[in-house]
Design a protein around this nucleic acid. Structure first.
Lengths: 247, 247
DNA sequence: CGACTCATTGATCACCATCAAAGAACGTGG
DNA sequence: CCACGTTCTTTGATGGTGATCAATGAGTCG
């Protein structure tokens, strides 16, 4: 699960073997590798980026699941988006004057770390990588846009349906799948915090959809039994995604 | 209100005189100007970017107010964020395979237009401008993050308080202000759609906060009477923003 | 003046939050 | 190996926030 070690770690990056990611040119790969300053490991439940302290590093999530969140001062928490392998984190800090979000690991997680102060240098040295980072930022915003529609306009059943389909699709995309079951390491508190629902109501809604036979969750794995029904219920039809850059 | 015409329109850009924006180098300004293909005018209530058809152009909003939105298939609408002069629009389309958002003008609006197919060329020619566009994208995502916290975790009074402070601050920043009153061209349907509330409940909540003397709205202008109270109610304390790039 | 849009208010109801408690799963230590 | 603590899930009961329905008022335009 840990990123490769040694002289040219990015050459052997397991993520790059996935269809989900674009192959960079040799030059680009070398630049990425020289931008990289090492790996980091964070265990399940721990903080990757503190909500109120800007991180001196940027990361690409290499393995595991994480999420971005914000909390109000009385403790109410909103999960903004979930992070899977290949996602780039910490970019917002660069421009937000400290008013940003936290990132927490759901499972044990490994990350590739990059020094924030060299971000501009990366754009300068390889404009294509700058373009790719913008791409990743735009994709990330699209996720939040979708989540905002969910919390703003969908009811509980629709929210759950949308989230299950969304996470299932993303897990498949990066190979977190076996025999039609996708990794699903979340507890109901995570789901509630992502959907803007209470824990109790999240539970009741999940059970209702499960009794209808739309999906099953077992031992941290999710299987979608009725994708059409869940898509229709959530009014959420995602097309297969183009391959994206991987920094 | 329209952008300057002539040979070197960006030299006389009124927006660039505001403290809110960073001054580009001469080279950068020339590159921006050559990237620009003209101006466009859209009247209040009309569509700037269609929700389901990717736009062949990118825009910088030059004057007026607009908003980004998504609708569900049964017509429920969620406003994702509001746009003010200086905001850059259409970037997401570049990477989203058509699954994107619409943009609609609240007031009459003018825009500077840029050809999408030359975006990569811009990054290539002037990496600094690529960096700036990433900056703008990250700032935009921060707005959506905040709105997601609002719809997910704030109650009606908190939502309204947060939105009023947010829009007031942003309007002041770009000079849409006179004697402590900020432009406020929104109707209650806009506010409801942005906050994930019904029109009726939005009205009742607005009236309640107004009766408490926290703010006043009159003829399309907003005055905040009790900024501290609104900030505390919304649990939303925004620090003054650094100057941002202007493309 | 009539048509239209938008703001306002009251009445009713449902979805979801909150409160409370018990069950299931798991790890730890006695 | 079992008792116990911890975490997570599940269910029932109750209440409130906000949705929905309905209607009137206010302002504007042709």
């Amino acid at each position: 699960m840990a990123p490769p070690q040694g002289a040219n770690p990015c050459d052997q990056c397991a993520l790059r073997r996935l269809d989900a990611f674009l192959a960079p040119s040799g030059d680009e790969l070398r630049t990425i590798q020289s931008f990289r300053v090492g790996a980091r490991r964070v265990e399940a439940g721990s903080s990757i980026i503190d909500e109120h302290r800007p991180s001196p590093q940027l990361f690409t999530l290499y393995s595991g699941w994480a999420f971005r969140y914000k909390t109000l001062s009385d403790g109410r928490r909103q999960i903004l988006s979930f992070l899977l392998p290949g996602d780039f984190l910490g970019l917002q800090d660069e421009f937000a004057d400290g008013q940003t979000h936290g990132v927490e690991a759901v499972t044990d997680v490994t990350l590739c770390a990059f020094p924030r102060e060299r971000l501009w240098g990366l754009f300068h040295a390889q404009p294509k990588l700058g373009y790719d980072i913008t791409w990743l930022a735009a994709r990330e915003e699209k996720l939040v846009d979708d989540n905002l529609v969910t919390t703003g306009r969908r009811n509980a059943g629709e929210r759950v349906a949308m989230l299950l389909m969304h996470l299932y699709r993303r897990a498949l995309r990066v190979g977190m799948e076996r025999d039609g079951w996708a990794e699903f390491p979340f507890n109901q508190q995570h789901i509630a915090d992502a959907l803007g629902l209470s824990l109790v109501h999240t539970n009741k809604t999940l059970r209702r959809l499960q009794r209808l036979g739309l999906y099953r969750i077992d031992g941290g794995w999710l299987r979608i039994m009725e994708p059409r029904a869940l898509e229709a219920l959530g009014d959420y039809f995602e097309r297969p995604m183009r391959p994206t850059p991987l920094i």
